[in-house]
C-alpha cells in the first residue's frame, strides 16, 4: 500500500498544478502528472492484489486515454494561439464566443 502513496501524492501535485498554472501548457503538466498517478495506481493495485495482468490492462487503457487527452489539449493550445496570440488560461473562456 505504501507504493500507492506515490500515486496519491503525484495526483495531489498534479491537482495543484492545474490550480496554480496560468498557461495551458502548465495546465497540461498537471494533467500528465495525474494520468501518471492513475497508471501507476493501476499497476500497484494489480500487483498487490495478485491480479497483475488485469492491473496492467487498466493501466494501458488509462495511458492511452491520457495520451489522447494531452494531444487534444496541445491542439486546443495551438488553436488558442491562432485566435488570441497567447496560451493563457483566461483566454480559454473567450473561445466560446
Amino acid at each position: 500500500m505504501i507504493f500507492c502513496g506515490l500515486s496519491v501524492v503525484m495526483a495531489m501535485l498534479g491537482i495543484y498544478a492545474l490550480l496554480s498554472r496560468k498557461t495551458l501548457l502548465g495546465w497540461v503538466f498537471g494533467l500528465q502528472l495525474i494520468f501518471q498517478a492513475l497508471v501507476s495506481f493501476g499497476v500497484f493495485i494489480g500487483h498487490a492484489r495478485h491480479m497483475a495482468l488485469k492491473g496492467q490492462a487498466i493501466a494501458f487503457f488509462l495511458m492511452v486515454l491520457g495520451l489522447s487527452g494531452i494531444v487534444a489539449s496541445i491542439a486546443l493550445s495551438v488553436r488558442m494561439f491562432y485566435l488570441r496570440k497567447n496560451t493563457r488560461m483566461d483566454v480559454l473562456k473567450e473561445l466560446r464566443h
Partner: peptide
C-alpha cells in the same frame, strides 16, 4: 508517452513563446 509529450511541450514552447513566460503562476 513521456518522451513524445516532453518533445511536444518543448516544440510548442519554442514556437509559441511559452519559454519566455517568466511568471507562469497565480
Amino acid at each position: 508517452f513521456s518522451t513524445l509529450t516532453a518533445f511536444s511541450f518543448l516544440v510548442h514552447g519554442l514556437l509559441f513563446g511559452d519559454l519566455l513566460d517568466q511568471n507562469p503562476k497565480t
